[in-house]
Design a protein around this nucleic acid. Structure first.
Lengths: 152, 152
DNA sequence: CAGTATCCCCCCTGATACTG
DNA sequence: CAGTATCAGGGGGGATACTG
């Protein structure tokens, strides 16, 4: 973020997304926020990030509308950082990363945290790509329409 | 990648995934690979990345099993970089990023590329989180089972 | 606890030149 | 075209000290 060259205007949503949350710390902060972390020091000690960096990241994410600050829920004098609706929209990105890592980055016997259905406790299903009508698609069944979003 | 502090062993699949593909260029290279880019110079001119950086990134991604090299398909003397099965597994990560950006980072009238069903040309469906039995879930319906060993 | 302010190093990254 | 080598800078990011 705040990098020399921005791909914000590249017309590719992937590039624009990475322009906003594509640095190494942001998604980890967001992941922690999904796990219920709200306070500065919780983020700091949990991530092992330098305080200055964390302050910068929290400010950036807030400016970009992914986090917002709220008065402390426990009545203390400090702010809490919570995900906005826009921020919560990143949940599927986190899940996709998690599922890929589970399938390709772990040995079967390795211990890891697991995302489960809150009620049943059963693991959630693999994300699937579907057509508008609900057919399951592979990557090779898709194609990218370059900028053909004509001026309606 | 190759950063001072690695979260590889953190027991959180998200952290481990970011450790491997969490830098800014990697996902853009992978996105281009999904779009059919295979040659060094195609990546270089398409991304505007410095040649040295690109060489490093391609090497890293190859070492990590996300890309592999193949002899040029057109008979020329050079290598091509193509996604492995592990690399192709990142497609849903790209799609999730794309969908989030489309929903939260674009004005309705803004020009952008579009991922469509290769046959019908219709846009693909929004990814959905589902329980093992197929029920649609929200973030708030889930919980993370911390691994046995590591905190996080 | 929740930051801000400094210092400073290292490495990411770009630019350029060189090679096969 | 497909890289490698080298140099230079800027800022990411850690450590520490300081403040309310």
């Amino acid at each position: 973020m705040a990098k020399r060259v921005s791909l914000w205007n590249a017309g590719c949503p992937v590039a624009r997304a990475l322009d906003v949350i594509g640095d190494w710390w942001s998604l980890l902060i967001i992941r922690d926020a999904f796990d219920g972390v709200r306070r500065f020091n919780e983020f700091q000690s949990g991530l092992g990030i330098a305080k200055g960096m964390l302050a910068t990241r929290l400010r950036d994410l807030t400016e970009r509308g992914i986090l917002e600050t709220a008065p402390a829920s426990d009545g203390s004098a400090y702010r809490e950082y919570v995900l906005t609706e826009k921020g919560r929209g990143l949940f599927l990105v986190i899940v996709a990363l998690r599922q890929w890592a589970e399938e390709h980055l772990y040995r079967p016997d390795e211990h890891r945290s697991l995302l489960v259905d809150g009620k049943s406790g059963a693991p959630i299903a693999r994300l699937e790509l579907r057509s508008g009508e609900g057919r399951t698609l592979e990557w090779s069944d898709t194609r990218v329409n370059k900028g053909v979003f004509d001026a309606m």
